[in-house]
Design a protein around this nucleic acid. Sequence first.
RNA 1: CCAGACGGCUGGACGGCCGCUGUCUCCGUAAGGGGGUAGAGGAAAGUCCGGGCUCCACGGGAAUACGGUGCCGGCUAACCGCCGGCGGGGGCGACCCUAGGGACAGUGCCACAGAAAACAAACCGCCCGCGCAAGAGUUCGACUCCCGCGGGGAAGGGCGAAACGGUGCGGUAAGAGCGCACCGCGCCCCUGGCAACAGGGGUGGCACGGUAAACCCCACCGGGAGCAAGACCGAAUAGGGGCGGCUGCCCUCUGUCUUCGGACAGGGGGCGGGGACAUUCCCGUCCCGCCGCCCGGGUUGGUCGCGAGAGGCGUGCCGCGAGGUACGUCCCAGAGGAAUGGCCGUCCAACGCCGCAAGGCGCGGACAGAACCCGGCUUACAGGCCGUCUGGCAAG
Length: 128
Amino acid sequence: MTGDPILAAPLPDLSAHAKPGRLKQRAEFLRAAAKGRKAPTHGVVLQALPRGDALPARLGFTVTKKVGNAVIRNRTRRRLKEAARLELAERPVIGFDLVLIGRDHTRGRPFLILRDDIRRALGKVGAL
RNA sequence: CCAGACGGCUGGACGGCCGCUGUCUCCGUAAGGGGGUAGAGGAAAGUCCGGGCUCCACGGGAAUACGGUGCCGGCUAACCGCCGGCGGGGGCGACCCUAGGGACAGUGCCACAGAAAACAAACCGCCCGCGCAAGAGUUCGACUCCCGCGGGGAAGGGCGAAACGGUGCGGUAAGAGCGCACCGCGCCCCUGGCAACAGGGGUGGCACGGUAAACCCCACCGGGAGCAAGACCGAAUAGGGGCGGCUGCCCUCUGUCUUCGGACAGGGGGCGGGGACAUUCCCGUCCCGCCGCCCGGGUUGGUCGCGAGAGGCGUGCCGCGAGGUACGUCCCAGAGGAAUGGCCGUCCAACGCCGCAAGGCGCGGACAGAACCCGGCUUACAGGCCGUCUGGCAAG
């Protein structure tokens, strides 16, 4: 990751093809947890930090060891990734850092309902 | 067919849609897009051993300390691993278990119980001698019992995880390896075996308790830290400090001297000079006293390390086996808040319920996710399959 995305792409692409980026550094996760808005649902907890720019949202995923062993955490995170990917492809979010936190129920939640959880959480924090 | 022992394999299948990471390729000036291909395990786990690799340390040898290993032989790069034997224990058997060197080098410990726990000793009991007031028996005898004293002895009882060999016969007052036979033990010899050890013979006379996952002794082995190892790039000709050397020409200012031409010292500017903008040349822009050597400090990011290997598969040969070897063939995950997936459908098994059954309904895949790489060990694991062998039952 070289340079700030704000400087790298001065003209924001507002089309629906813009893919969400990823959060990769620990500091970014901590900032979202400390300053972002929180929206818990049954299947997922969302932390959203407005960046104040017009770039596609950046996504991060957190599943703690409390949820289970490595296999269970992997499956939980992958379902969240896929649900968020499909959801944001239909309704792109602009100018937010989003952290999705997996819970015990994430794994057994019916997929369409999990997507609905994410949509409602995005609505709660005003990202839609 | 039933019960069991051992070894090995497997541990969902197929299809559709949408994605992810690596790589190859095509289109495109580029941004980007299309297509192909590969993509978790037997334990990837625990991080318990052994190595490769990397950095650090290091003249050679010996001794000591510390840590590890511990029947014998072999395999291996190596091992606390594996294979084949041996001894001991268990099982009718197939087979299983076993840290299994040394207790005449020394020290320590052996709880409770018990008289006594290691060098001898004696609680009850046994035997002999002497005494015998009282008591009992009496064949009226200091005859016996009881009791007291002295002695013999270690067979019996009792304690214990363990008591100075075991069983039997002889022997004796009672006894004792006191004598004998067998067993056990020690020593010597012979035979077989590379060896651990086994078998046999002789001999000694019971002397040698146990404990070394107690200290210890003996033999052998062992530098330290780890991929967050380590290397490079970049920010960075920036910025801080030290040492040494060089500083040409022109203009100008100040000071001193002056033979009035100027000279010397210090400061400023310009040119020359050096450098950055990928590279060479030209132009342009920008930066800077110059050059060389040296010292100290920090964070984040990127690239490498990073997968052709003690490699997989097949066949032949050698070996009882672990394994070795030759030939052929294949290229087989490389992430980095971390890809290897998400959803749907059909099916095959399990599990639960209903049913005599055929079947129906529900639930829905065991343990578990690579992080530098190998060889092991240990632990977890629904179920399924294959092979060899043992003991029964039945039939032939």
